[in-house]
Amino acid sequence: MPIDAAKAVAAEPRSTKIAWGHKDVQLYHLGLGAGLPAADPEELRYTLESRLHVLPSFATVAGGGPGVVGGISLPGIDVDLASVLHGGQSLTPHRPLPVSGEAELTSKVAAVYDKGKAAILVLRSEAADDEGPLWTSDSQIFVRGEGGFGGDRGPSTRLPAPEGGPDLTVLRPVREDQALLYRLSGDWNPLHADPEFAALAGFERPILHGLCTYGMTLKAVVDTRLGGDVSRVRGYRTRFTGVVFPGETLRIRMWHADDRVRAEVTAVERDDAPVLSDTVVEHA
Rank of each mutant, 00 (worst) to 15 (best):
M1K: 14
P2W: 03
I3P: 00
I3M: 07
V9P: 00
P13Y: 06
P13Q: 07
P13I: 02
A19D: 07
W20C: 01
G21K: 09
K23Q: 15
D24N: 10
L27N: 09
H29F: 06
L30Y: 03
L30F: 10
L32K: 04
L32Y: 01
E43M: 14
R45N: 12
L48N: 14
E49L: 09
S50E: 12
H53R: 15
F58A: 11
G70N: 03
G70C: 00
S73Q: 13
I77Y: 03
V84M: 07
Q89K: 04
L91M: 03
P93E: 05
H94G: 03
L97I: 14
P98Y: 08
P98R: 05
V99M: 08
S107L: 10
K108F: 04
K108E: 11
V109S: 05
A110V: 07
A111V: 06
V112R: 01
V112M: 03
V122T: 07
L123I: 14
S125N: 12
E126C: 00
A128H: 02
A128S: 08
D129K: 01
D130N: 06
D130I: 03
E131T: 12
L134K: 04
W135H: 08
T136H: 12
Q140D: 15
I141A: 00
F142I: 01
V143C: 10
R144W: 01
F149H: 14
G151I: 13
G151R: 10
G151E: 12
R153Y: 05
G154V: 04
P155K: 11
S156Y: 02
T157C: 09
P162L: 13
P166M: 10
V170N: 04
V170M: 02
V170E: 02
R172E: 10
V174Q: 07
V174L: 11
E176N: 12
Q178V: 11
A179D: 01
L180I: 07
L181R: 08
Y182P: 05
L184R: 12
S185D: 09
S185M: 06
S185L: 08
D187C: 00
P190S: 00
P190N: 01
L191E: 02
E196V: 14
E196T: 09
E196R: 12
F197V: 14
A199E: 15
A199N: 13
L200H: 13
G202C: 10
L211M: 07
C212I: 02
Y214W: 13
Y214G: 09
Y214A: 10
Y214T: 08
G215T: 03
M216P: 03
L218M: 10
K219S: 15
V222K: 04
T224R: 14
S231T: 15
R232L: 13
V233S: 03
G235S: 15
R237A: 15
V243T: 15
V243L: 14
G247Y: 11
L250M: 02
L250V: 04
L250C: 05
W255N: 07
H256D: 14
A257K: 13
A257L: 11
D259K: 11
E264W: 00
T266D: 09
E269Q: 11
L276R: 01
T279N: 06
V280M: 10
A284S: 13
